[in-house]
Write a protein that binds this DNA or RNA. Structure first.
Length: 788
DNA sequence: GATCCTCGAGTTCA
DNA sequence: CTCGAGGATC
């Protein structure tokens, strides 16, 4: 750099920075890394500081102004910023096209179509190529002067590029916040304890209304141009698409998704294509906009009140809606978990009517401070499940109270309690609580458990309320007559609105249908009698025992009679079962009521189809030292357990042993005393004795051969995502497991292969990010064929 | 004790 | 799908 010619260097730096900006925001082809950009900007800043006389308002260093202005001035739009008519259905789009075709008497109309960003409409005024004023849309006739804030938006050029632009040019477009930037900003704000933005749209709007442009400069705002306003001292091309192309040349970002399409069919195809990509786009859109492309046609169509007749916005079903909370009720789950659910005034969100939304737990309610009577924003996040995003504070009616968890279960009246350090509150009624009983039955009968088809929620409700089902075992006691009687009584209880003049033949028909239903259900229950151990264990609904743990238990121990009598520390020999889960299993089997249910189930014909000996892999795990560690005795570390195990032959030898004998075994006196003290508790001594016996029994029956048949996928972790055409994901998972793979539910760096089916989502994205091997369905099928 | 990875549990509507 | 928490690992 030559000190003698700072002006030349300044001009060069500005050019480089502007080019970089243009390539980044308009062409989407960055040419220099961010760090390099920052370096150039710093150099320019220093040069300008040394030569203040060379600073111009359109320099890239001058984006962020200083003094907060007091208030926004009003700006009158030379040409009003119009609103657009809306279309919500295909029919309305056809009407729109038909109206134009009739008036213009022209077939094959061409439209310029582009996504409608969910941001804030603004107007930018350029005089002789320099950005002089920017305003919000306001009411369309006049808006607020937010020039200082708009200058901080890097996607907005401070001076126009190229040539041929009019002396005065107003550009219209949308300021928005890209979704990823919004998330990043919020994450940062949360960490700093700052204010979190409700959604990208509000974020963009709020950012532009900041009085201090230095705050706006920190917000990740972006911009797309979609049209023009006043044009003086020059002319624009006479079609919308060509105008957009010109704007792009002059330095404005223009949506890359814009297209020129023909006729109503073309518009609808475009609408669907964008709709499919909606979730994957980096920004929120609320629809697409169609504009008649040629200027002559536009002029001929003219305006109706304040909207052009040559353009329309075709909206997507709203993903977020406002509604009111009519009540907050709690639901009791299978484990007694009390989940608050908001009852909402019905509202259409993303195509379905939503009346309920989970509030997860009491903490969540406290965080959002949702109250009965509040207006709230409801969203169907990504998939389908509605959630309350936030409260509209301004609309809170007077006299509302913060919500609190009720002290008693609304179903059984038992106390609702919360374990130390846990997030969930639980009804303490256990199986005396009808709600928990019903949920337990529902879980038992569910598809992935015993798979009793036709036993819907309503019937569980009725059967349970009318006393036919005290426990899951009673399912296998039901007779055809029971079911028919139940149905009759249930109908009496809550009669179906009786149709006047209902005739006998109809009643007979209803009777036939009921009989048919009952027969089918009885048959389904009968089919479920043959169950795998894995499904059966899962169906019991033991806390912390889901499908995966149930499967591990079945594989390692193989026999229900063994499992149901195992002291809890032995469960810890199975990988992924720790103290918490082991105790939960022990607690379940310790309860006589549960053992009775199991006995009843077996007595009524439930038969485990795959009983076998414990897995050979278990043998290596069956040592006294491991058992001693699993008992969680204070001061007994693996090293101390090892010492005890080598000095004593078995668990019973440890009983009734004075502490000094433990010291002779090599234990420090502290550990020896702690162990002796632990043994003094009868319950502990008994647990040790029982566990020792169980250890011996297991050792006696566990086969020696630990070798497992090695499959081609041994040791590989596979994740399935998306839909497969040739089989269900479950089937594919079973086949992969048969080849030795471990099928996991989520992608991590430990994953070896991801099988991506149709419309795979975030898991596929994550796999690509982590550079994990990805198979499509064809690859999977080829592999399965190759290996049997 | 911290961190990463999984699993369990709960949830909506047609 | 998302959250919370249990288990494994360093």
């Amino acid at each position: 750099m030559s000190q003698a010619r700072p002006a030349a260097r300044i001009a060069e730096l500005r050019q480089q920075l502007e080019d970089a900006n243009y390539r980044y925001h308009v062409l989407d082809e960055p040419n220099i890394p961010d760090a390099e950009y920052d370096r150039l900007l710093r150099e320019l800043d220093e040069l300008e500081a040394a030569h203040p006389e060379l600073v111009t308002p359109d320099s890239p260093t001058q984006r962020v102004g200083n003094a907060p202005s007091g208030k926004f001035a009003e700006v009158r739009h030379a040409i009003p910023m119009l609103s657009l008519g809306n279309a919500f259905s295909d029919e309305e789009v056809h009407d729109f096209v038909r109206r134009i075709a009739e008036k213009l008497q022209r077939p094959a109309l061409k439209f310029s179509a582009e996504p409608k960003l969910d941001g804030l409409a603004i107007s930018l005024r350029y005089e002789h190529g320099a950005f002089v004023q920017g305003a919000t849309r306001g009411d369309g006739a006049s808006g607020e002067d937010v020039t200082a804030n708009l200058r901080t938006v890097k996607a907005i050029p401070l001076r126009l590029r190229g040539e041929g632009w009019p002396e005065v040019l107003e550009v219209r477009g949308e300021v928005y916040m890209p979704r990823a930037d919004f998330e990043r900003y919020n994450e940062h704000a949360r960490l700093q304890g700052g204010k979190v933005l409700a959604n990208p749209r509000n974020g963009a709007a709020g950012s532009l209304r900041q009085l201090d442009p230095r705050i706006t400069a920190q917000r990740p705002l972006a911009f797309y141009a979609y049209g023009t306003g006043l044009v003086e001292g020059g002319a624009l091309p006479d079609s919308h698409s060509a105008t957009l192309a010109k704007l792009r040349e002059w330095g404005f970002p223009v949506s890359a998704l814009g297209e020129v399409v023909e006729g109503a069919e073309g518009l609808l195809v475009y609408y669907r294509r964008i709709g499919e990509r909606r979730d994957a786009l980096p920004f929120d859109i609320d629809g697409v906009v169609y504009k008649l492309d040629d200027g002559e046609g536009q002029r001929e169509m003219g305006f109706v009140s304040r909207a052009p007749r040559w353009a329309i916005a075709h909206k997507f079903p709203a993903q977020e809606q406002a509604t009111t909370v009519e009540a907050i009720e709690i639901q009791i789950g299978r484990t007694g978990a009390a989940t608050p659910v908001a009852r909402l005034a019905p509202v259409q969100v993303a195509g379905v009517i939503v009346t309920n939304a989970t509030l997860h737990n009491a903490d969540q309610i406290a965080r959002l401070d949702v109250r009965v009577g509040d207006s709230v924003i409801v969203r169907r996040a990504g998939d389908v499940i509605p959630e309350v995003v936030g409260v509209i504070a301004e609309r809170r009616p007077d006299g509302t109270q913060p919500w609190t968890m009720p002290a008693h279960c609304p179903v059984c009246g038992s106390e609702i309690v919360r374990e130390e350090g846990e997030a969930v509150w639980r009804c303490s009624g256990e199986l005396s609580c009808p709600a928990q009983r019903k949920e337990t039955i529902r879980h038992f009968a569910s598809r992935r458990a015993m798979d009793i088809e036709g036993l819907g929620d309503r019937y569980i409700e009725d059967l349970s309320d009318l006393g036919y089902l005290q426990s899951v075992a009673d399912l296998y006691k039901l007779t055809l007559d029971d079911l028919l009687e139940m149905k009759r009584r249930a109908d009496e209880r809550k009669p179906v609105p009786a149709e006047a003049g209902s005739t006998t033949p109809e009643t007979a028909k209803a009777g036939k249908i009921a009989t048919r239903w009952a027969e089918n259900l009885i048959e389904a229950i009968d089919r479920s009698r043959a169950a795998t151990l894995e499904r059966f264990l899962f169906a019991l609904g033991i806390q912390h025992v889901g499908e995966s743990t149930a499967k591990a238990l079945a594989q390692w121990f193989g026999d229900l009679q063994l499992i149901r009598r195992l002291p809890w520390p032995l469960f810890k020999r199975v990988p992924d079962i720790g103290g918490e889960v082991a105790r939960s299993l022990g607690h379940f089997f310790d309860q006589p009521g549960n053992q009775q249910v199991i006995d009843d189930l077996l007595a009524r014909g439930v038969a485990i189809t795959d009983t076998h000996l414990p897995s050979g892999r278990l043998r290596a795990e069956l040592t006294l030292s491991k058992l001693l560690v699993d008992l969680e005795i204070p001061k007994i570390t693996p090293v101390r357990a090892e010492q005890l195990a080598s000095a004593f032959a078995n668990a019973s030898a440890l009983l009734d042993t004075p502490a000094h004998n433990f010291v002779s075994a090599g234990l420090p006196s502290e550990s020896a005393n702690a162990f002796a003290a632990w043994l003094e508790d009868d319950a502990n001594a008994q647990l040790l004795s029982r566990s020792g016996e169980a250890l011996g029994t297991l050792l006696a029956i566990t086969p020696e051969d630990a070798a497992e048949a090695g499959g081609p996928l041994d040791g590989k972790t596979v994740v399935l995502t998306g839909g497969l055409a040739s089989m269900s994901r479950d089937e594919a998972g079973a086949k992969l497991e048969a080849l030795g793979a471990k099928v996991a539910g989520s992608v991590s760096k430990k994953t070896h292969i991801v099988v991506a089916g149709e419309s795979a989502g975030s898991k596929l994205a994550k796999a690509q990010e982590l550079g994990i091997e990805i198979w499509d369905e064809a690859r999977l099928l080829a592999f399965l064929v190759e290996h049997g």
